[in-house]
Every structure is written in structure tokens, then in C-alpha cells.
């Protein structure tokens, strides 16, 4: 049963894809664009879903798909350099091949709960990667959503992922407000300085939007606290959890937390659902 046709015999079997471009976003984040080989197709996904990237012999890991499903023909992955596999990926050049399998997990409820709502996106650092997919999906289906606020912060200006796209596209669109912040003063930066949670309190959004948070666990914690203080209910707030994964399909046991498997029941959770999980993430 040899097959390189993109319709694997099992969800565990990856397909080969070509890396067509690699963009350096920040000193330690690159965005990889992959396409199916000639005559083959890549799976469809929804915003928030993930895929397993394999470099044979080096390793395999789960990454959030950064591109929106409305961008056809390719998938983007914004990847921070932080280990063996990501070191290897960062050393690659456009034109090389890797393998991918997916999509995995439950997406953001973009076509249900999010519909008709004002949306408030809050991201820190590489946390913009999973939100990037939702934001561009929402932009492509603008009529289905209300006002959009995006609050994004990073260590420095150079660590803001997708800065060009934010500046040249998002900032220019009507009905979208983008608030950027960096942790410390920096030459050439005349925007806001300070951490995301405190900027959020300053901005004092009315608690009528649906909020989506993504970033380091400590940021998520303080942002959630701030939102509650501002009058948001946990049922209005979504985030993603990150645990070690291997199979992606709820079988290898690795990402089990309470009665949930992050790979299939997540990575997207509503904050009231997270409250029901044992405190082990």
C-alpha cells in the first residue's frame, strides 16, 4: 500500500509538501508557506486548527495554521525557533520539502458564536499566529461581524509578528482598530509602551464584544483577569491551550487533561470550559 497521493490510509500518515517561501518575521520567528505537490491537494482547515509538520528523522510537532481558509492553495505556519525541529525548520530554504498531516482540533466558532458579534482580539508575541487565521477569515467575511479591535503586544518592535501586514493592510481598513504595544521604550517607536494587560485596562473596551486571547500562559492569565474586571463574562472569552502532542487524534494520551484531549477537543476553549479542567496546564 504505497501511496503518496494525499489521501493517506490513516490520519497518522503525513503527505509531502513543498515550502515555497520563508519569511523572516522577527529575529526568531519565520513564516513558512507550504503547497501540495503537483497533482495533489492539501486538506481544508478552519481558523484555529493545527497541523503536524514533519521533518523526517528530525521530528514532528503540532503548529497552528496561520493562514486563513479563505487564502486558497497554501498554508502558512508562523514558527518560533525554540527546539530541535524548529531549529531545523529555521535553517531550511525555500524549495525544500517537508511533510504535513492534519487538520487537527476544534476551530474557533467563526461561523456560529462569533457571527454578528463585535470581536476583540488580544495577542502577545507569537500568539498572533493562531489569531492571524481568524482575523483574516473575519476580514474576508466582513459583513458577518461587527466592530473589530485588535490589541497586540510584543517585547520590542522587531518582535511584532506580521508587522508589515498589520501596518499596510489591517491598520488601513475601516471598522478595524489596531492597538500595538511593546514592553519597553525603543528608538523609532512612537506607539504605546507597556504590557498587554495594562494597556487593555487603559483602553477599557465595553464588555459587549467576544474576546479571543492568545499568547504566553502568564499573559493569558492577566488578560483574563483584566477582562473580568472590565465586566466580561468567561462565556464571552476564548483562548487556546497548548500541551504536548503526538497523534493529534485523541489516542496517544499525551495531551489529555481532565476528560478533554487538547488535540481534538481543543486547542480552542471557551474560558468557562477551562474552569472545569483540573489545574494542570
Amino acid at each position: 500500500m504505497s501511496c503518496n497521493c494525499g489521501t493517506p490510509v490513516d490520519k497518522l500518515i503525513p503527505q509531502t509538501v513543498k515550502v515555497v517561501s520563508i519569511r523572516q518575521d522577527t529575529p526568531d520567528v519565520k513564516t513558512f508557506r507550504v503547497v501540495a505537490l503537483e497533482g495533489e491537494e492539501l486538506f481544508d482547515h478552519m481558523p484555529g486548527q493545527c497541523a503536524m509538520l514533519t521533518v523526517p528523522g528530525v521530528g514532528e510537532a503540532m503548529f497552528s495554521i496561520t493562514s486563513s481558509p479563505t487564502e486558497k492553495g497554501y498554508k502558512d505556519f508562523s514558527i518560533k525557533r525554540c527546539g530541535l525541529l524548529t531549529d531545523y525548520l529555521h535553517s531550511m530554504e525555500a524549495g525544500e520539502e517537508v511533510c504535513v498531516r492534519g487538520p487537527y482540533g476544534k476551530p474557533f466558532p467563526v461561523d456560529t458564536e462569533f457571527k454578528g458579534k463585535d470581536l476583540l482580539f488580544i495577542a502577545g508575541g507569537i500568539g498572533l499566529a493562531p489569531l492571524h487565521s481568524v482575523i483574516n477569515y473575519v476580514r474576508a467575511n466582513r459583513e458577518n461581524y461587527g466592530k473589530i479591535d485588535i490589541l497586540y503586544g510584543s517585547r520590542s518592535k522587531d518582535d511584532l509578528v506580521d508587522f508589515d501586514e498589520i501596518e499596510n493592510e489591517w491598520l488601513k481598513e475601516e471598522g478595524i482598530n489596531v492597538y500595538l504595544t511593546i514592553d519597553r521604550e525603543q528608538e523609532g517607536w512612537d506607539g504605546h509602551v507597556g504590557f498587554v494587560p495594562s494597556y487593555l485596562k487603559e483602553l477599557d473596551f465595553p464588555p459587549t464584544s467576544t474576546a479571543v486571547i492568545c499568547g504566553p500562559p502568564i499573559m493569558i492569565k492577566f488578560v483574563l483577569q483584566a477582562l473580568i474586571e472590565m465586566g466580561f463574562e468567561k462565556t464571552q472569552v476564548y483562548t487556546t491551550l497548548e500541551l504536548k502532542m503526538k497523534c493529534g487524534i485523541g489516542k496517544c494520551g499525551r495531551c489529555n487533561i481532565g476528560s478533554k484531549y487538547v488535540c481534538k477537543d481543543g486547542p480552542v476553549f471557551r474560558c468557562d470550559e477551562i474552569d472545569e479542567l483540573p489545574n494542570e496546564y
Binding site: C3, V9, I13, T16, P56, E96, C99
Partner: peptide
Amino acid sequence: IVSFEKTDGKIKVTPDTI
């Protein structure tokens, strides 16, 4: 479950037989 062969930068994926 699956094997990979890399020749001239091309990756061939061969699932193991069920």
C-alpha cells in the same frame, strides 16, 4: 507506521502495510 525516503531533496512517503 510509515517510512520516508529522501532523494535529491524529494521526500517519498510510504505508509506501512495494514
